[in-house]
Amino acid sequence: MNGMSRIVKTIASITFPLVMIYGLYIIAHGHLTPGGGFQGGAVVASGCAMILIAYGSVWTLGKIKEKNLSILESVGAICFITLAILGLGFGTVFFKNFLIGSEIIFGIIPSFGSTISNINTAGVIPLMNFAVGLKVIAGLFGIVLIMAYASTRRDKY
């Protein structure tokens, strides 16, 4: 797929950082406000898809390779399942929230009812948000990138 006109490219590159910041905010504040790893990942991936449409898949594939995205996704998935297995190691069962109440990182329990947001809460959930966010960004953007690139390639059978 080829790139689009210069106006589109300029506007896309101006809007791109804003979308990225919004998506990363959603990922980071997933345990406090609406959002989380999936939603933020989807927003960031759609921002990347915008760049892909504006600049064309060939240009984008020169910047980032699908193999790297695949490995990034593997890393995100391994982080997620490792956090689950650490629940077995430090706690007692899979998916045990072993950081909650530990007073280290993210270990504070908020008081019941309507509270102000404190990012230092919720145990392993913010870490899982980051792992899932990484995975969803890499996965969804990878799908769009591969499909856009493959539609330009004409293999003969």
Binding site: P34, F38, A45, V144
Partner: peptide
């Protein structure tokens, strides 16, 4: 939560 996900995934991707 679902609204954000649906807007990002359904309407864009």
């Amino acid at each position: 939560d679902v609204a954000i996900a649906e807007a990002g995934v359904g309407a864009c991707l």
